[in-house]
Design a protein around this nucleic acid. Structure first.
Length: 540
RNA sequence: GGCCCUGUAGCUCAGCUGGAUAGAGCAACAGCCUUCUAAGCUGUGGGCCGAACGUUCGAAUCGUUUCAGGGUCACCA
């Protein structure tokens, strides 16, 4: 049992002996900001003061009288009624051994209780290359999947491929026109709302290379299919280079072909009405602005209906919780899809729709618009080539998803020495070098009794926060918390490095204990970096 | 106009499930390399936490109002 649990149990016991039963979760332990306020602190006496009809300080005194907790040296009452716990040095340094034993698994928690979670992200239309906004969603989604796994959830990563509907029609028409143009035949135009970018021209070139002019008699269906295939292939490749992977790609077309749309439509009938020749779904009954069209006047589906079928399908596949990551421009989507899930008898609270706020790109002091339909978009790939995958990924998860992000390309490129990515990686490389040089000579001694410097103890305390951070990050779906933690950890490591000479042939015992601390720190730092998808180079 | 996001140091932002004295990086200034990576470390200056009111023993954090910026409101997806 860890020290936090130990303290909570002891307090709960004591409070109940004073005549009040409390839940362990009601006891909050936090880490005081200032020196002299102990290692852990609780405000329980202030919270319970009313119930007991006593002043917080008086109650705190009663709680801590005769309270002995293993691993705690001293308990003090401070300020308006905080109870501060001073952890024994042995208890603190014992963590080194734990971390080295657990290795990569250190920090893993059971918060998720193996709950089956389906995490959907990116899901960009297969009509062109991924752009900036997609990249942020990809980075956040991928990190989230790693964090949730670390926190004990059973996560499936999924990409929904919109390979049906009017956008794909446009793609097919655009590709066909470009294909003919490549063959010197300008009789077909790219539709006005089609795809005018270079992507489609490249696709056309591939088709010419592959089949010369033999596709001239193919129908639109052919160009739609090939267009989607080529676009998706590119997207997958770009994502792989961005270190973002998926377990499942689900096709909208497949959902349609399996009759799932009609099935859902049947179930939704009681919540629908006909108007102006279109079929509306009554989403206003669950707080939406207006009712939504699901079947257009011309008889075709709007995007919404297959989407509803898709979400229903996720539940039907046995997932207890769905998480969708969408661009903030989709925020209107939340009410309507939740409403439809409710109408279908699913619990809308089991569907989390997280919005990733917009990214704006700046270069030479000017904003670059990123419309992928104008053909002038800065793609995710270009950005990675310019800034580097590590930099882009780190930067995209360094702020809360709900924060707008201004990405200044010039700044990101010239970040050089002040780049936080390098700062963290540098700390790792330093640790690695010491282990490389010293481990054979001194060995690792995780006993820790010789570690008394402030830099050493502060570092160990920081290491001890890891699993807490994992849980917080998983609960709030906020990967940026990991990024912040990694940076703080790197700062403690650099501080330790500067103040404590590790390899010292005149003090073999101390060297081996400090090396063990290096090892433990390196394990946590590397794992932290891996959670945000950033590499941990051994040399720089 | 409705809805969403955001206003904290000169700049970029943490902190927001209420807690003790407001945090970091960058920029500025002053120090630290005979010894494991100076891509580092230490110190100094810098704040009416957009504004007002309310809830509370206690508010940057919660509520209401208000000001400012961004986004979004299709029978596109």
């Amino acid at each position: 049992m860890n020290i936090e649990q130990n303290i909570k149990n002891s307090i709960a016991l004591k409070v109940s002996s004073l005549g009040q039963e409390i839940n362990l979760n009601d006891i909050v332990l936090e880490r005081p900001k200032y020196e002299g306020q102990g290692d852990l602190s609780t405000n329980i006496a202030m919270k319970l003061a009313k119930v007991f009809h006593k002043a917080p300080v008086v109650l705190a005194k009663e709680i801590i009288s005769d309270l002995n907790i293993e691993g705690v040296d001293k308990i003090e009452i401070a300020g308006p009624g905080f109870i501060n716990f001073f952890i024994s040095k042995n208890q603190i340094t014992s963590l080194i051994k734990t971390i080295i034993e657990q290795g990569k698994n250190y920090g893993s928690t059971t918060l998720g209780k193996n709950e089956k979670v389906l995490l959907e992200y990116v899901s960009a239309n297969p009509t062109g290359a991924l752009h900036l906004g997609h990249a942020r969603g990809a980075a956040i989604g991928d990190c989230l999947s790693r964090i949730l796994k670390k926190a004990g959830y059973d996560v499936t990563r999924e990409y929904y491929v919109n390979d049906a509907g009017s956008q794909v029609d446009n793609l097919g028409l655009s590709l066909k026109a470009r294909y003919f143009q490549e063959l010197g035949d300008n009789s077909l135009d790219v539709p006005e709302n089609g795809y005018h970018g270079e992507d489609v021209i490249n696709f056309a070139k591939i088709l010419v290379e592959e089949g010369k002019d033999s596709y001239k008699n193919e129908n639109l269906e052919f160009f739609k299919k090939r267009g989607v295939e080529l676009a998706l292939e590119n997207i997958k490749k770009d994502l792989r280079e961005f270190r973002v992977e998926f377990d499942v790609f689900t096709s909208e077309k497949a959902i349609r072909n399996q009759g799932k749309v009609e099935k859902v439509l049947e179930e939704l009938k009681p919540y629908c009405y006909q108007e102006d020749g279109a079929l509306f779904l009554k989403t206003t009954q669950d707080g939406d602005d207006k009712d939504r069209v699901i079947i257009k006047k011309d008889g075709s589906y709007t995007y919404l209906l297959p989407d509803i079928a898709y979400h229903k399908d996720k539940f039907d596949r046995g997932y207890q919780r769905l998480i969708d990551l969408f661009g903030a421009d989709h925020h209107g989507y939340i009410a309507r899809i939740k409403s439809s899930m409710k109408s279908l008898g699913e619990n809308p609270d089991k569907l989390d729709i997280e919005l990733v706020q917009m990214v704006r790109l700046f270069k030479d002091g000017k904003e670059y618009k990123m419309s992928k339909r104008t053909g002038n978009a800065i793609s995710m790939k270009e950005l990675c080539e310019e800034v580097g995958v590590d930099g882009v990924r780190f930067f995209f998860v360094s702020r809360a998803s709900s924060q707008h992000l201004d990405f200044d390309i010039d700044l990101a490129k010239t970040m050089g020495t002040s780049n936080p990515v390098y700062y963290c990686q540098y700390a790792n490389a330093r640790l690695y070098t010491m282990l490389e040089i010293g481990q054979a000579q001194y060995g690792l001694n995780s006993q820790g009794n010789l570690l008394v410097e402030k830099s050493e103890l502060d570092l160990i305390k920081k290491l001890s926060e890891f699993s807490e951070i994992i849980n917080e990050s998983a609960l709030t779906l906020a990967p940026s918390k990991i990024t912040i933690y990694v940076r703080e950890l790197a700062a403690k490591i650099n501080d330790f490095y500067t103040n404590c000479r590790v390899l010292d042939s005149t003090n073999v015992e101390l060297s081996s204990q400090r090396l063990a601390l290096c090892k433990a720190s390196q394990i946590v730092l590397e794992e932290g970096l891996s959670l945000i998808g950033v590499s941990a180079p051994q040399h720089m």
